[in-house]
């Protein structure tokens, strides 16, 4: 499982991924996501609740309930189709190759074990080392995530730590086995502003230090800008726009991305009416047969409701799913390095 990947293999590759939940009602959570990500890349996955960003992460870790979930399409990590994993290989993959940081560290950490024990357990399990060696790794990790007096904190239970400290411990736990891919699911949403920025900058530094790929899921465009090399904007289970952070923020093309940027209120003029996106996201009980955003879009035209919008390549990795761009971009835009 942990064979060295062939050079040039993307770290993560989604090929027309579709995820559907069955049950009392059917939900088409992911509707044809195609995305690839290089090793060491920091990708921000931006979207509102129900857009499918967390489902994408859970698909990668195979955390979705197998009996009620239909997964179609390809999901490859380092060239391996993760749908084929099971048993020991799946256990080695989770936490060894790919690990995850959750939104609420107080819930994700086990309350009855000390932080040191939890980190050491993971290291022993994956690396097959002694408890003493694993504890040394735990101490080293707590130091790297810049927890003050790490020796003492090793013996702390999660409830003895503050929210920011717990999230640092969670990150230490996730990175203890040096995964090649870290999945971060809104890791700073539950934190205060002054603590959030500390964790964001810590993640940025650790990413440089360890060189792992990171998928950072957030609903906050400001947070995505702060940490990502590249941003993918999700809406109704699909990626509507991807590009370098600079392209997406400075030259957004999809009307939804533009709306999100306006709704961030960065630079909104007091008292002036906000350019709000009307309505709310679709319920996704049916797979989309047209642009899912069209009912809320100020620029919608008949073509938007006829078929799924094409993905238009604007060059430089900037892609957008919108019929409006089809007309505007006849010739590929000059690529700026």
């Amino acid at each position: 499982m942990t064979d060295a990947p062939k050079p040039g293999t993307p770290l993560v590759e989604f090929d027309n991924l579709k995820v559907r939940f069955r049950g009392e009602r059917t939900v088409h959570a992911i509707n044809g996501v195609s995305l690839s990500m290089q090793p060491g890349e920091m990708l921000g996955l931006l979207g509102e609740s129900g857009s499918g960003k967390s489902v994408t992460l859970k698909t990668l870790l195979r955390l979705l309930p197998p009996k009620r979930t239909d997964i179609e399409g390809g999901v490859r990590v380092n060239g391996t189709d993760i749908k084929t994993l099971s048993g020991r290989r799946l256990a080695a993959y989770r936490g060894g190759e790919v690990s995850m940081v959750f939104q609420e560290p107080a819930l994700a950490l086990d309350p009855v074990y000390t932080v040191g024990d939890q980190i050491a357990e993971t290291v022993m399990r994956h690396k097959g080392v002694s408890r003493r060696a694993a504890m040394d790794v735990a101490l080293d990790m707590l130091t790297r995530v810049r927890i003050p007096s790490p020796e003492r904190r090793l013996k702390n239970y999660p409830h003895e730590m503050s929210g920011g400290m717990r999230q640092r411990a969670m990150i230490a736990l996730a990175l203890a086995c040096r995964p090649q891919l870290l999945l971060a699911d809104e890791p700073t949403t539950a934190l205060d502003a002054t603590v959030q920025i500390q964790i964001l900058l810590l993640l940025r530094e650790l990413q440089k230090e360890f060189g792992m790929g990171v998928i950072f899921v957030t609903h906050d465009i400001g947070v995505a800008v702060e940490v990502s090399d590249r941003i993918a904007v999700m809406y109704a289970g699909n990626i509507v726009e991807t590009g370098t952070t600079r392209d997406v923020i400075k030259d957004p093309r999809h009307p939804y991305t533009k709306g999100l940027l306006a709704a961030n209120l960065h630079g909104a003029v007091k008292g002036e009416r906000l350019d709000a996106i009307p309505g709310s996201p679709p319920a996704l009980e049916e797979p989309p047969s047209a642009c899912s955003f069209a009912p809320r879009c100020a620029f919608a035209r008949p073509a938007c409701l006829e078929a799924l919008p094409p993905e238009i390549d604007l060059g430089g990795g900037h892609k957008v799913r919108c019929v409006l761009e089809q007309d505007q971009v006849k010739t590929p835009q000059p690529v700026e390095a």
Binding site: D220, G222, E226
Partner: peptide, 21 residues
């Protein structure tokens, strides 16, 4: 200063405060 910068060319370099409240 802890607000995200919203500017990919001018990212926040250092957290303005250490620790939790």
């Amino acid at each position: 200063a802890a607000m995200p910068s919203m500017d990919p060319d001018n990212l926040t370099e250092e957290p303005p405060l250490a620790g939790d409240p």
